[in-house]
Nucleic acid binder design. Structure first.
Lengths: 303, 303
DNA sequence: ATAATAGTGTCTTTCAGACAGTATAGT
DNA sequence: ACTATACTGTCTGAAAGACACTATTAT
């Protein structure tokens, strides 16, 4: 505990010090928040028997002003002086897209000097998975338009170079964003360097078509984060309706992990996280499936 | 790509827009970086046969000015306008403690409104594990003193409350920091809330003795992060010398995870991460042990 | 010889992966 | 009957946990 009677080397008490403190002594960067909102949605299906395919989608807003005018960006904005960083993320999301009452977690804070052509901007990104059928998106004041874009992430180049003292691994991923009208792409390079025993990872945007700022990279990182968290947490259930079939749940896992899973094994693995209800689907054309709900007490350990 | 010829609704080109843009339209928060540097060091041992015990330590600097004068803090400081966020962390660490040539990763960005009594400060914390025998710490200009403090983290209270729509789990941890002269403590509350299907986690400092700002909480979070990362990455090797015995390595894991591990199993598990050298220890009093070094190619997958 | 650490062998249990099989609705 | 999905049983092999045993040094 700091003691109010203590004097600093200028002979000031804490109170005196705070009164004379000039917080504008140094120039300050601007701080923004950038929510990355993912969902998994159904695609149309013609065959009455087949189940709808699922796609991963991300929420973007069209920029109505410079810089990157008409490009698509994450629904973020500047942090106010009197709001917590987390709250800024919720407020901006609400303002720009009308989404509220969801949970977001901090993803990463991006602090390269020239991220924004206007000025020095440091941005904290936030991550959320939501059930898109539950929210009602709607463009806000700063944005022309808010839309879900389907997202594909593809490895287009991989390279390993051995150096005297370790190696350099480079990967280039192409992100493809699609909606009814537009196709946007972004090339992201990830570099993993090993030098002696020291590993470091850096990321950069190589090319961006229709995506503002470094937001392609932020989305790629968000996707990477979900892929790892879906393995050991219950985040996937944020994408589900109140009740769901195990096949739907499995499809969500498959879309996010971009692999096929074996049904029997998947069911064994997620069994503790779900509770069977006495409802069944009535979609028809095949055997009806049992509806399940999330089991909030699946983990009786940790925090 | 934004097209320079596009005009915004005020009829300005990008260039014109940037020229007239006033980046000081809104008040800005200050941004700092706070490196959390951990090491595992040997404690003295009298018995010639016994191996030295190991302790987890964290690096703190004594504050020489208000606020929290004479308290201990993380060796951080303000981000300059012309340096990347990451670089700010390295620069501050070098300035305050003389440590350089290490790898740090971003830990979390703390953005509560009243974190700092001087003004609004948003802080990005960075995390590193280092071999303390390799670095030469030395107090810098802003700090009276730089010291390693041994760190103990103890669960002192745990509570689960069932609510109508979920539960609230609270945990209180006590951090105890010790060096030859001082004992500092910090009580950290972690709250995990489940409301419907939405889980959220929040942290706060309940009490702080001798630790400045919310730095106790940042350190606790850093410790949590290492505990989880040590399980699936090679970060532990940052704490080791160039060559080491498997028992030393095991002790490092045991200190960080705060559990005892079975020797045979531990060796099986880390076998792919290490390479046997032809050197042996000569400490005596018992069978000499083989020295190993890190195997940089232990993971032939992922990035 | 003794105390202390170094290092190995192996049993058991658990869990992940693979795959084959049975069940049941609507048309 | 057919098609598409729902759901279950079980084999296999790998990894995790537990524990007992042998080896080797300075004093």
């Amino acid at each position: 505990m700091s003691n109010k009677e203590l004097l600093n080397r200028d002979g000031l008490t804490l109170e005196e010090f705070l009164n004379q403190y000039d917080s504008n002594k140094y120039e300050k960067p601007s701080v923004t928040v950038d929510p990355v909102i993912f969902t998994v949605a159904n695609e149309e299906e013609d065959n009455y028997r087949k189940l709808p395919k699922k796609v991963l989608k991300v929420l973007l807003v069209r920029r109505s002003d410079h810089p990157f005018i008409n490009c698509w960006a994450l629904p973020g904005g500047f942090v106010d002086m009197d709001e917590d960083l987390d709250n800024a993320a919720y407020r901006e999301l609400k303002e720009e897209t009308n989404i509220e009452d969801i949970y977001m977690e901090q993803l990463y804070t991006w602090g390269k000097v020239n991220r924004d052509p206007r000025m020095r901007v440091i941005s904290s990104s936030y991550l959320s998975l939501i059930d898109s059928s539950k929210v009602n998106i709607q463009a806000g004041s700063d944005a022309d338009d808010v839309k879900w874009f389907s997202l594909k992430c593809q490895l287009v180049k991989e390279q390993k170079t051995i150096t005297e003292n370790g190696y350099i691994k480079e990967k280039i991923h192409q992100l493809t964003f699609k909606n009814h009208d537009e196709v946007l792409t972004s090339l992201i390079k990830t570099t993993k360097t090993l030098e002696g025993r020291i590993t470091s990872i850096s990321r950069e945007v190589i090319e961006s078509k229709g995506i503002a700022f470094d937001h392609g990279m932020i989305i790629a990182y968000g996707l990477e984060r979900i892929r790892s968290k879906i393995e050991y947490t219950d985040i996937a259930f944020n994408l589900m309706n109140e009740v769901f079939t195990l096949t739907e749940l499995q499809n969500v896992y498959e879309i996010i992990l971009d692999t096929e899973l074996l049904k029997a094994n998947f069911r064994r693995k997620i069994a503790p996280m779900v509770i069977e209800t006495n409802q069944k689907t009535t979609t028809g054309g095949h055997r009806p499936s049992t509806l399940f709900k999330f089991n909030p007490n699946w983990e009786e350990y940790s925090l």
